[in-house]
Design a binder for these strands. Structure first.
Lengths: 264, 264
DNA sequence: TTTTTATGTTCGCTTTGGAAAGAATAAAAA
DNA sequence: TTTTTATTCTTTCCAAAGCGAACATAAAAA
């Protein structure tokens, strides 16, 4: 393997993941750590990354931006991903189910695709979802009470959690804001993290959903390891590395309609 | 996780939230508090933040400017009568009050006129009201949980009533659908009637509100006699007959801003 | 051949982050 | 107010991980 090729790979990896460990690269590329350090040194001089103890972090100007300017295209892209995931959710839902949706865009999308299902009971902490879904006569909508959060238009807090303890659902669809291999799932508020814990203990199947955009992103509050999930739904462009990670944790992964890749 | 990555996240969080606690960071990032303090120390040297006991505050020059709320008055569309009543409601609300709004158009209008009030706590069963009001930073919004009703976009039922029993409010503004001299107040669902009873027993002052349109109308479910109310707000065109009826029941009547006609 | 370039190995040195204990500070009680 | 209590902060010490420098090796270039 030539040095130049190595450097290319390192760059590509950094653009995807924002950070790497020296040890990882050394193993992956089959060269010694010293060599990797020398590569990183070059890339640092070049201004591509900043070295840290144990590895390196990409410099902001090279980071893959979550959203450049072509905003319409981007929105469509996201909508597509969300729609894809939402459809899989709906496939998992049967007539007469008692399910829960946590707050989030994907779940809102899924709740709009429930026409055709019969006699559902849906529990949620998402105000928007509840107010839209209740027009569906085949769905009985239960909204948790609690403190209303402005940014997410959802309820959280002590009351929400105590409300929740009155119910037990077949399936819960939990939407998270970050996944990575160190911490597992993360969300952007402590109240949400807390609510999710309560939810998991009140449902027989926990389905975690997220778009591939948030892979390797770390939101601020830890929810817990990936093994908390019984199933995971995300869109197709998920790296093999992450697939393995999910399989290792014995979680079923669904990435496309009519097909799932899982350990069993 | 690298130190640099941690610092990035801390910065990002501070830009969003202006302040953090050491304990929060420690938990969220999965490192010890000592480590967090050392990170904060670096950031303080750098001039990014100022440390405090228990955490840190971002320095003003890095603060994210609060996005100018483009909330132009939407009052124009609101029915004149409703606006008139809503304004009187707002006059009754003081800083630091803990109040409740039942679901209804008048209360939604009133909740939009709360700018300028400070430190309110608002309890409601109205989903629309809750989701709009929560953007007001001076108001802590608590939404009751329960069964979501499609036509009113509000929650009712067993859960709502049991939630309610956890709270006691200074004033409640109850919007009813009918008033007449035989039955008193009426509403258009049994769940609403039931909820109102529960509410009255959990508040010190019950203010009933309605437009003059519904005088002499009878909705389907009885709430109870006019004497349930401590105060009534309605618009001006109310007959002398009804005024007397209200006075006889020892209820204060408010029909126009800055003036009320009542027995005491 | 010698020289150059790329990579590996070894060995102290440095950085990192955790534990513990005492000091400082805020909050609560008297 | 003063005193007490509970947090939080600082300091010191330590172990583990990671690092750079120097030297070693090997293949390619001159």
């Amino acid at each position: 393997m030539f040095a130049l090729e190595r450097i290319k790979i390192i760059k590509k990896f950094l653009i995807e993941n924002n950070q790497v460990e020296v040890s990882t690269l050394s193993e992956a590329l089959g060269v010694s750590e010293v060599t990797i350090r020398r590569d990183l040194e070059k890339l640092e001089e070049e201004g591509f990354l900043t070295r840290t103890h144990g590895g390196a972090v990409i410099n902001p100007q090279y980071e893959k931006k979550p959203s450049p300017m072509p905003q319409i295209a981007r929105l469509q892209g996201i909508d597509a991903k969300i729609g894809e995931i939402a459809k899989i959710e709906v496939q998992m839902i049967n007539d007469n189910d008692i399910i829960m949706f946590t707050n989030g865009e994907i779940n809102r999308a899924a709740s709009k695709l429930l026409k055709g299902k019969r006699n559902l009971t849906v529990l949620t902490n998402d105000i928007i979802l509840a107010s839209e879904l209740c027009s569906n006569p085949e769905v009985k909508v239960l909204l948790l009470g609690g403190d209303v959060d402005n940014s997410s238009k959802a309820v959280f807090g002590r009351l929400a959690e105590s409300n929740l303890s009155n119910f037990f659902v077949n399936k819960v669809f939990i939407e998270v804001d970050g996944v990575n291999r160190n911490i597992g799932f993360t969300v952007n508020s402590t109240e949400k993290a807390s609510l999710i814990h309560q939810i998991i203990s009140n449902s027989s199947t926990a389905v975690f959903v997220f778009t591939s955009d948030i892979i390797n992103k770390t939101a601020f509050y830890a929810v817990g390891a990936v093994s908390l999930a019984d199933k995971i739904i995300t869109n197709n462009d998920i790296s093999d590395e992450y697939k393995h990670y999910i399989f290792e944790n014995e979680v079923q992964l669904f990435t496309s309609i009519d097909m799932y890749e899982g350990f069993a």
